[in-house]
Amino acid sequence: MAASRRNSAGLIRHALALLVILLLPAPRATASEGNSTNSSLHLSWPHLNATLLGFPPAFIPPVTWVAAVDPCSSWEGVVCNQYGEVTEVSLSEKGLKGRLPVGWSELSALEILDLEKNSLEGGLPAEWSVLSSLKELNVRFNKLTGTIPGQWSALQAIEALLLGGNKLTGSLPLDWRSFTAVRGLALGHQKLTGTLPAEWSLMTTLEFLDLSHAKFQGTLPQEWSSFRSLNFMAVYSTKATGTLPAQW
C-alpha cells in the first residue's frame, strides 16, 4: 500500500511537470523594458497601485509593494507590458495571508496569476470572471474555502486553472463546459462533491485533469471519450464507482 502511494505521488509529480512544460508562456517584456519604451505610459500608476493593494487591503503584500512607488518598476512579482498594464502577478511561496482581492478584477490585461503555496483564505472571487485575458490561474495549496464560481466560465482565454490543495466544497460547475482553450485543470485534494459532469466532454482541448482525493460519486462519464488531447487524468481516492467506460 505504501509503495502504491509512493508510485501515485511520483506519477502526479511527473504529470504536473509535464503540465508546467506545456503551459510555459512565451517570453514577455519585463517592467523595465516597458518603461524604456515610453515612460509617459505610466501616468496612471497611482490608480494601478490602489487596485493592486486594495482598500481596505485584502492581504498583507510583499515589502516591496510600497504605496508611493510605481508597481511596474519595482514591485516584486509584478510584470507590466509597454502600456503600463499588469500582465502577470507571481507571488508563490511568499507567506501571503488574507483574502484574494476582488478589486483585481480591474486588471484587464492580466494573463498570469500565481499565488501558489501561501496562506490565503476566503473564497474565489466570482468578480474575476471579467479577466478576459487571463490564461493561467494558480492558487494551489492555500486555505481557500467556499465553492468554485460557475461565473468563471466567462474566462475564455484560460488555459490552466490550478485550484487543488485547498478547502473548496460543492460540485464541479457545469458551465465550465464552455471553456474553449483550457488545457489543464487541477482541482484535487479538497472536499468537492457531486458527480463528474458528462457535459465537460465539450472541453476537447483538455490535456491534464486532476480530480483525485475528493468526494465525487457516481460513475465515470463515457462522454469523456471526447478528450482526445488528454495526457493525464487522476480520479483516484474518490467515491466514484463502476467500471472504466469501454468508449475510453
Rank of each mutant, 00 (worst) to 15 (best):
V102Q: 02
W75Y: 12
W65F: 12
W65D: 09
V79N: 05
V66A: 14
P57V: 13
P61N: 10
L43D: 11
T51K: 02
N81S: 06
G77F: 09
V89H: 04
S74R: 13
K97A: 01
V69M: 14
S92W: 01
W65Q: 08
A31Q: 09
E93A: 06
A50D: 15
N38T: 07
K97V: 08
Q82I: 07
P101R: 01
L91N: 06
P101Q: 01
L91C: 05
N35Y: 14
A58P: 12
S73Q: 15
L48I: 14
T37H: 13
F59V: 06
E33M: 13
H47Y: 09
S92D: 05
L100D: 00
V86N: 01
P61A: 13
W65K: 07
F55G: 02
P101A: 02
L52M: 15
S44M: 07
S73D: 11
L41G: 05
P62A: 13
E88T: 09
A31P: 08
S36Y: 07
L53P: 05
S92C: 00
D70H: 03
L48A: 09
N81A: 02
A58F: 15
N81Q: 02
P61Q: 11
P46R: 06
V63M: 11
A29K: 13
G103M: 00
P46M: 07
L48D: 06
V102A: 02
P71N: 11
Q82L: 06
V69A: 15
L41Q: 14
N38V: 03
R99W: 00
H42A: 09
P56H: 10
S39P: 07
A26N: 11
Q82W: 03
T64Y: 04
L52H: 12
G95V: 02
L91H: 05
G54F: 03
E76R: 14
A29Q: 14
G34C: 05
E85G: 04
V78C: 11
C80H: 07
T37N: 08
N38C: 14
W65L: 09
G34H: 01
R28D: 03
A26I: 06
Q82D: 14
G95Y: 03
P101S: 02
P27M: 08
V69L: 15
A29L: 14
A67G: 09
R28F: 04
V69C: 11
L96V: 01
P56Q: 10
T87S: 08
P62G: 12
G103S: 03
P71S: 13
S39D: 04
V63H: 14
E76V: 08
Y83L: 10
I60R: 15
